[in-house]
């Protein structure tokens, strides 16, 4: 049976992890390769690296990092943040990333999804969608959530699939950081609207939130950052708990 995936997300700036992981020795806490290796050994099913470098120098460092990760890590990983063109995607995929994640650039240039899917296959294209509930409707937000659009989340999810996305990563801005659970209703609606896998993100505060996510929606994976980084929930403990409830995990 296909397993539900648990995916830790690491924020990267200039080749280093931005929020250090609390339970690791300080000198290792900022090292993405050491952290990736730790998570992969503790049962993470995939990893996501989100680059928030603003400079060209930072982007070059990212490519070097992807090469090092590919040498060390024996599970799939996705790289996102600042991908604007087929060339950007190509560089990361050829350096060893399994998938690239597109966000704002896909909204402003939807054809980019198709171009990357045609060049490298749909399985390599994750479309990340930041969404926020305004007046009872869920809208797409861009540029790190700082800019609103008039695009409804469901519409964009369907369109991204039609354009060639292999997977969607949905982050609820209302839930992100609140540690009060995932946005179950909209996640459920998006899962039903598309036939590609959906990853839910934003709001994980406890193991119970993953139980709710996997029992109340058809989502393929749950992504979280701080609860794993601060060891509030460990991946082995979380998986043991999910298994006892017959939720399929590796």
């Amino acid at each position: 049976m296909l397993k539900k995936r648990i995916i830790p997300c690491l924020d990267i700036k200039d080749g280093r992890v931005v929020k250090g992981v609390q339970f690791l020795a300080l000198k290792e806490a900022g090292n993405p390769v050491a952290l990736a290796s730790f998570y992969s050994k503790s049962g993470a099913d995939e990893l996501v690296f989100l680059d928030i470098s603003a400079t060209l120098e930072g982007r070059k460092t990212l490519v070097d990092l992807v090469k090092r990760l590919s040498k060390e890590i024996n599970i799939p990983f996705t790289v996102g943040g600042g991908i604007q063109s087929v060339e950007d995607a190509q560089l990361l995929l050829q350096s060893g990333a399994d998938k690239v994640s597109l966000n704002s650039a896909a909204v402003s240039h939807p054809k980019l999804i198709t171009q990357i899917a045609e060049a490298f296959g749909s399985q390599s294209v994750v479309v990340a969608i930041d969404i926020k509930k305004v007046d009872n409707n869920w809208y797409v937000f861009v540029k790190g959530g700082t800019e609103s659009t008039e695009i409804l989340a469901i519409d964009w999810a369907r369109k991204a699939e039609a354009l060639g996305a292999g997977e969607l990563l949905i982050t609820s801005m209302n839930n992100d950081g609140a540690k009060d659970g995932f946005a179950l209703d909209i996640t459920r609606q998006i899962c039903q609207a598309v036939s590609i896998p959906v990853i839910a993100s934003g709001g994980a505060g406890s193991a119970n939130d993953f139980i709710d996510l996997f029992t109340k929606t058809e989502v393929s994976a749950g992504l979280a950052a701080s609860i794993f980084h601060f060891n509030e929930v460990s991946i082995p403990d979380l998986k043991t708990l999910l298994k006892t409830l017959n939720i399929p995990v590796r």
């Binding site: 397993k3 995936r5 099913d45 590609i196 590796r250």
Partner: peptide
């Protein structure tokens, strides 16, 4: 046939 999510993506036995 897309009776379940396609691609078949993830870990399976």
């Amino acid at each position: 046939e897309p009776k379940l999510k396609v691609p078949h993506m993830g870990w399976n036995t």
